[in-house]
Design a protein around this nucleic acid. Sequence first.
DNA 1: GCCACCGTTCGCTCCCCACCGAAAGGTGGC
DNA 2: GCCACCTTTCGGTGGGGAGCGAACGGTGGC
Lengths: 246, 246
Amino acid sequence: MEKDRTADPAAPGLAALAGLLADETRAAVCLALLDRRAWTGGELARYCGVAPSTMSEHLARLVDGGLLVRERQGRHGYVRLAGPDAARFVEDLAARVSAPPPATAGGLRAHSASRALARGRTCYDHLAGRLGVAVTDAMTARGMLRQDTGFALTDAGVDWLTGLGADLARSPNSRRPLARSCLDWTERRPHLAGTAGAELCRLVLDHGWATRIGTGRAVRVTPLGEHELARTLGIPAADLDPSDPR
Amino acid sequence: MEKDRTADPAAPGLAALAGLLADETRAAVCLALLDRRAWTGGELARYCGVAPSTMSEHLARLVDGGLLVRERQGRHGYVRLAGPDAARFVEDLAARVSAPPPATAGGLRAHSASRALARGRTCYDHLAGRLGVAVTDAMTARGMLRQDTGFALTDAGVDWLTGLGADLARSPNSRRPLARSCLDWTERRPHLAGTAGAELCRLVLDHGWATRIGTGRAVRVTPLGEHELARTLGIPAADLDPSDPR
DNA sequence: GCCACCGTTCGCTCCCCACCGAAAGGTGGC
DNA sequence: GCCACCTTTCGGTGGGGAGCGAACGGTGGC
């Protein structure tokens, strides 16, 4: 019971943090909340198949641990991920759990990405799925994003996003990076996240290049989007077949 | 008991992975193994203050979960982190647990880094602590590393490392990025990790710019190192005072 | 102001697992 | 080949926590 004092002082905190996700129900909650919507406790209870009282206790633990925040609205109590940091934390762990295989070594060629636009998702606040990977690869191929020596936007990439209407100003006290890599766990390829990823997602939706399907994470590229993505990023529209499973 | 089938299929795996670190003893083990050495079960048991039998069970779980690997050597059974991926996983979580504060917003000026060389550590296979942060900031200030739009080496950075003797060739099947950011949880500043970070650490030790203190993670900058770091990265030697607590 | 609804708290049960000591299993020294 | 040492396996104990149902409480509708 009495632990040795010489052990790393960070160990209890690390164990506590990991413990937040070390339960199947809590893990499912955090994954569900990656859609960036606010859910009620009742919805989550039904979704996970547990009693509302059980869900209430889980949510209390997650809120207490700083991973979730509450939003009271009338008689409903909504809960959502605490922010980009919390989302990144969940994403990183989820990516690791389903990405242990050695990866398909697809390289960075834009060609392989061209057929990958059919299905898109959002990952908290940025594009993911095939759409996210395709856009990321196309940006890389056109010199807007540098992945060979790390993961950073080039000046050309900053100009392109700014020209589209992106607000890339970083608040001085924000620790969020402008661009970072996020591993998509269906495509198992990196895609653009961070402030730039969030802005790009917002622009794509605002400009009508893609629309959300239903209330979930799925997005669909519109005909306008096909045209504009082909024009600005050189992704041939002929390859855009939503029914193509791969 | 019967969980709803509609819940995210990734949830059980995520919970299982988090569960590996959701115990104080196992967390302490993983943190201890960040020094990249191989420990025996007995050492870890003493270090964590548990019985050898208990440690044996913990190690079995961690190995089974893919976080640790065993190395049999005679009558000793050594255990170490499974690789850079596993180390990154532990680092990321450990960084998050002790870095929730809003950060000191130190900017990227090389000046602030100059006094930070006194204490250095290794973080699995790359430089960390003040030394790691100082070198990273100096490289950024001299245009070898770009942090404003992400985190990537520039061509100048690649040339400098190659000139020092770094082998930056990436094996095609390796998913490890050339450069990535690792958040140091004592300095709370990003520093260079990835293949380039590992090579830089190897070079600094091989060239005698720094030496390991004892058998742990600590490293000390040598007089030669002070001279060379000042000459090549512009870090004034006058500011290198190991006794300066900050 | 009463009712309906949603969420939380409380008491309870049960299972999982962290922990230990004792015994068994391997390995190298001599 | 025997002994010493390290590690693992096994049985047993205890605590934490995940789960539920029932009761309580706050909010909005009417």
